[in-house]
Design a protein around this nucleic acid. Sequence first.
DNA 1: GAATTTCTAGAACGATCGTACAAGAAAATA
DNA 2: TATTTTCTTGTACGATCGTTCTAGAAATTC
Lengths: 195, 195
Amino acid sequence: MAGRPVNHQRRADLLDAAVEYAIEHGFADLSWRPVAGALGVSTTTLVHHFGTKEQMLEVILGRLRERAFAATSEAVGDQPDLAAAARAVWTRTSDPRQWAEFRLFFAVYGRALQAPQQFAEFLDRVVTDWMRSLVEAQGPDADPATATRTATLVIATIRGLLLDLLATGDRDRVQDAAESFLATLEAGRGLTGRG
Amino acid sequence: MAGRPVNHQRRADLLDAAVEYAIEHGFADLSWRPVAGALGVSTTTLVHHFGTKEQMLEVILGRLRERAFAATSEAVGDQPDLAAAARAVWTRTSDPRQWAEFRLFFAVYGRALQAPQQFAEFLDRVVTDWMRSLVEAQGPDADPATATRTATLVIATIRGLLLDLLATGDRDRVQDAAESFLATLEAGRGLTGRG
DNA sequence: GAATTTCTAGAACGATCGTACAAGAAAATA
DNA sequence: TATTTTCTTGTACGATCGTTCTAGAAATTC
């Protein structure tokens, strides 16, 4: 009756390797043959496991978003409040060992902004996943409007600083600005209220 | 002796039209033939005026960066202080009529992060141009370290909020967060000091 | 008008793109 | 072992890519 079983692990391994390739070689010129060559398989193998190239791009960036979020969300969960959570997120994201991954993250982000229908899920979740995490970090008693406002600002500031850091490599200046922002958060003044 | 003179205006017009095309159709799949078709010229004409495709991309994104900066820098110059300058920048950049242009801006930004040697000038100036403008907005008497720190934070926050706005389209939430940040700036507390 | 240079267009080059097809090897069941 | 399904490969197709070449029209100086 049933023939050879589907090897899901094989597909997962290929996907991980493809994500690694994308992190190293970029996202703009990603095509079947170079990826297949780097992974030591034929293009047909990739087609068999991922379907079309568009579908492969979708699963790659989905995995990338998962990784970028998972790397920090677990740290957020352990923190007592938003300020500590924000500091934990910044500490992890500003680590030079993750620069290549975040360069790809912003490359995907930019491309998604110009093809919103193709990358709809990415655009949907690229903010909301972190929003939920940072709102929760403020505890159940926080005012929802204030919590949303503060979480939005924390996400935006961290990503903006990261954009600066990746473009200029000026760690001292960016870290200085980040410390200023985090200190403001930790002081609990100026960001939760309106005026 | 001298033959037909070089028509610089022609090249400038073609460049403007190419930038408009890029804003409308995106940056990822920009190639000679579609651009030439949209502009009503042959690919040879584009090659003649811009050389290689790589060179055309460079001048396009240079022009784009000029436009993005010029649209706000003049507003900054008229403001009395940093808080007013930041508000003027945010008001202009969050205008929906500029969304398409900023989508392209971030697409270029992301791509530049993955090809730093090709887009070296973009990466150099994408932060420093605004830095200079926002440091100047704080007046000659401001402490340089503080002015740099604050300018870095203002640029990062505005760009981060813009990333959110372009991805989610949630104007109410993002504007709420922006108002919170601008209010903090206008109160002059929490961002200029370290603790 | 002759000479010279720029501008524009069309055709063609080799390379690479995504994808489809045919076929054999591998791994399960009956 | 026979059967069935998955996995993998090589080949090939049409399309598009950036670029080059050839040639004619346009604009200037002599």
